[in-house]
Design a protein around this nucleic acid. Structure first.
Lengths: 219, 219
DNA sequence: ATAGTTTTTTACCGCTTGGTATAAAAGCCG
DNA sequence: CGGCTTTTATACCAAGCGGTAAAAAACTAT
C-alpha cells in the first residue's frame, strides 16, 4: 500500500499550506460574506497570489464551496455529537450551547458562515445563496428526524410536532448568528439558549430515562 | 401661511413619484442587500435613470438610508403598537406575530431589511453594516425598557431579567428573518412564534390584570 | 547538466461597479 | 416670444472586480 501522500511530487513544490490557506479564506468569508470578499482580500489573507489560488482551488465559487465543506465539518461534528444525546432535551441543549460556543470563538470572526455567507446576494451569487439555504435546511431536517424518533420513544409528548420544534430551534440558532454578528458575547448567547430551552416540551410520563442533563426541577 | 407643498415649483417637473421610487428601491435592497443591489438594478426597478436618482436621492449610501428610514417607519409603528400592549406577554406575542406577518408580506421579498441589508459586508459598506446593527439593537433596547417597566409592575416575576428576555425575543425575530429568507412561510413563522412564547415567564401572582390575550390555560 | 513538470510572479484583460459631465427637454415667469 | 431653472437622456469616467497569459523559478528524473 502506498502512502496517501506521495513523498516527492514532481515539479516545483507548493510554497504554502493549502489547509491553512483554506482556513484563512474561511475567516475572510466569515467576515465579509461571499460577495463581499474580493480576490484581493482573499489572496492577501492567504498569503498567496491570484494564479496560485486559482491553480490550487479553482475559481472563487469553487473556493467558497471548499471552504464551506471545511466549515461544515466542524458543524457536522457538533451535530453528530448533539443528535446522539439520549434525550431530545439534551439534543437541543447541546445544539444551542454548542452553537453559542461555535459562533463566538474568539479566534474567528463572530457569526455563522451559512448565515453571513450570503443571505441576500447580488446578480452572480444566486447559486451560492441557494446552496447556503439548502445547507441550513439540511441541519433542520436532521434535527426533525431526530425529534421524530424521540417522539416514538416517548421522549416527546404525543402532541409535539417535530417539524415545528426543529424549525423553532433553528430559528433560534440562526438568530444567534445574527446576534453574534451584531456583537453579542458568548455569555449573552448562552443565556439566550437557556431561555429558548424553557419552551421545550417534557414527555407526558416524566420517568427519568437515565438521562444525563442536569435536573430541571428547579421550578 | 404658505402651503407646505408649493403648487408649481420652478423648472422642469419631476416625471416620477419619489415615494413610489423609494418603495421600488426598498424592494431591490430587501432582495439583494445593500452591496448586492447595483445602481443598474435600482434604476431599472425605479424606472428612472442614474442622474435622476442621484439628483433626487443622493448617492447609493444616502439612498439606502432614506430607504431604511422608510422601512423603519413600518417597523416603528409595529413596535409602538406592540410595546403599548398591557402585559409583557401580549407585547412579545404581538411583536413576534407582527414580525412574522411583516417579513412574509406576499408583495415584498421575504426577510427583514435590517438583517438582509448587510450582515457581512465588503470593504465599502462598513458604515452601513454598523448602522444596521445599531438599528437592530435599538429595537432590542426598546423592548428591554418595556420589560423593565413590566417587572416593576409585577407583570414579570422578580427573577426575570429584562435584558436577557429582550435579547431572546430579538434572537427569535432575527432568526425568523433568516428563516423567511430561506423560504419559510407565514404559517411556519407563526408556529415558531407560538413555541417561542411558551418560554415566556408568568408573574408569580397570576391574578388576571384585565389582559386581552386569548386564554393560555389550555394545559 | 539537461529535460520535464509544476508553481510562482508580473502584468494584463474584459467587464461591471458607483458616479458625472454635457446638453437637450420641459416646465415656469416676464 | 425669450430668459430662467430644473430634470431628463446619452455618453462617459476612473476604479475595482474576477480571471488569465506568459515567462521565470524551483523542484524531480534521467
Amino acid at each position: 500500500m502506498k502512502a496517501t501522500k506521495s513523498p516527492s511530487p514532481i515539479g516545483r513544490p507548493r510554497s504554502f499550506d493549502t489547509s491553512k490557506a483554506l482556513d484563512r479564506a474561511l475567516q475572510v468569508f466569515r467576515r465579509k460574506g461571499y460577495e463581499g470578499a474580493s480576490l484581493t482580500d482573499l489572496t492577501k489573507a492567504m498569503g498567496i497570489n491570484r494564479p496560485s489560488l486559482y491553480a490550487a482551488f479553482g475559481d472563487k465559487e469553487v473556493l467558497f464551496r471548499k471552504v464551506l465543506d471545511r466549515y461544515a465539518e466542524g458543524q457536522l461534528s457538533l451535530a453528530r455529537e448533539a443528535l446522539s444525546e439520549p434525550t431530545s432535551r439534551a439534543v437541543v441543549e447541546r445544539l444551542l450551547c454548542g452553537t453559542a460556543e461555535r459562533i463566538t470563538c474568539p479566534d474567528n470572526p463572530p457569526g455563522c458562515l451559512l448565515v453571513q455567507g450570503a443571505l441576500a446576494s447580488g446578480n452572480g451569487a444566486d447559486s451560492i445563496r441557494r446552496e447556503l439555504t439548502s445547507r441550513r435546511l439540511a441541519g433542520q431536517v436532521a434535527l426533525r428526524q431526530r425529534l421524530k424518533r424521540a417522539k416514538l420513544d416517548g421522549d416527546l409528548p404525543p402532541e409535539a410536532n417535530p417539524a415545528n420544534l426543529a424549525r423553532y430551534i433553528f430559528t433560534v440558532i440562526q438568530g444567534m448568528a445574527v446576534q453574534a454578528a451584531g456583537g453579542a458575547t458568548r455569555a449573552d448567547l448562552r443565556r439566550v439558549a437557556q431561555i429558548a430551552l424553557q419552551s421545550w416540551p417534557v414527555p407526558r410520563n416524566p420517568r427519568e430515562k437515565q438521562l444525563g442533563t442536569h435536573t430541571q426541577s428547579g421550578d
